[in-house]
Structure formats: C-alpha cells, structure tokens
C-alpha cells in the first residue's frame, strides 16, 4: 500500500535539514537546499528501516530532485552556468516550497 505521490514533475521543493542518528540516504550537501522535482521514480522500501534489518515497509515515494550549482555551493565553479546536480530523495525528506524559483 503506497500513498499517491505528493509532488509532480516541476514542483519546487526544499530538502529538510534534519539531524537524526539513524542511517539515511539524504546527503548533508542538499539538506536545506531548494530545487525542483525532475521526476517521480516510484515507491521503494525505506532504507532507513532496511538498515535496521527490517522489511522497509510501507514503501515510500522517491523523486529525483534537480539543484542548480549556485543553490548548493557558495563557491560554485565560475563557468558553472546552467550546471546542476540531480539527487534521489525520498518524499519524507521534502517539503513544498512556498514560492517558485
């Protein structure tokens, strides 16, 4: 049983900055950063539960989120232009951005 995806392609999102003790797959360099949904990838077992030897259920929605280089780093490369980084992020680490950008 999986919940319908909360976000759709193009939606502006922000990654939660969350200091938890357990294993998770959300690298620090995207936490607190804003990007947009590049695609919905489907629903997958939750790695935060799998890492504890559990079954990872319920399945959780996964997205690819696109971040502009300038959003991620204060020292992006000078010739970065439209360069971006796409990162897979599970839905419970994302929240809707109030304003589009």
């Amino acid at each position: 049983m999986t919940l319908a995806p909360k976000f759709k392609q193009g939606d502006p999102v922000q990654v939660c900055a969350r200091d938890v003790a357990h294993h998770r797959r959300t690298p620090s360099y995207v936490q607190g950063r804003r990007g947009y949904i590049e695609r919905f990838c489907g629903a997958f077992a939750n790695p935060e539960l799998l890492a504890q030897g559990r079954d990872g259920l319920p399945l959780i929605n996964l997205y690819r989120v696109r971040f502009e280089q300038a959003e991620l780093w204060t020292t992006a490369e000078v010739d970065a232009g439209d360069d971006s980084v796409d990162v897979e992020i599970y839905e419970h680490w994302l929240r809707q951005c109030d304003e589009p950008f």
């Binding site: 439209d82 360069d83 971006s84 980084v85």
Partner: peptide, 25 residues
Amino acid sequence: RKVLAEFGTQLPAGVSLRVHDSTAD
C-alpha cells in the same frame, strides 16, 4: 568541470553539465 579536466576532458563552450548522485534506488 575541474574533475573532468583531470581526466583530460574539456567540454565545448556552451555545453552545460549535469551531475547525477546515485543516492537511492
């Protein structure tokens, strides 16, 4: 772009670059 240069790779002008971080499935 610096890392690519260390592999001897220079992208032509006007080519944008996307990095894909395989964090999940």
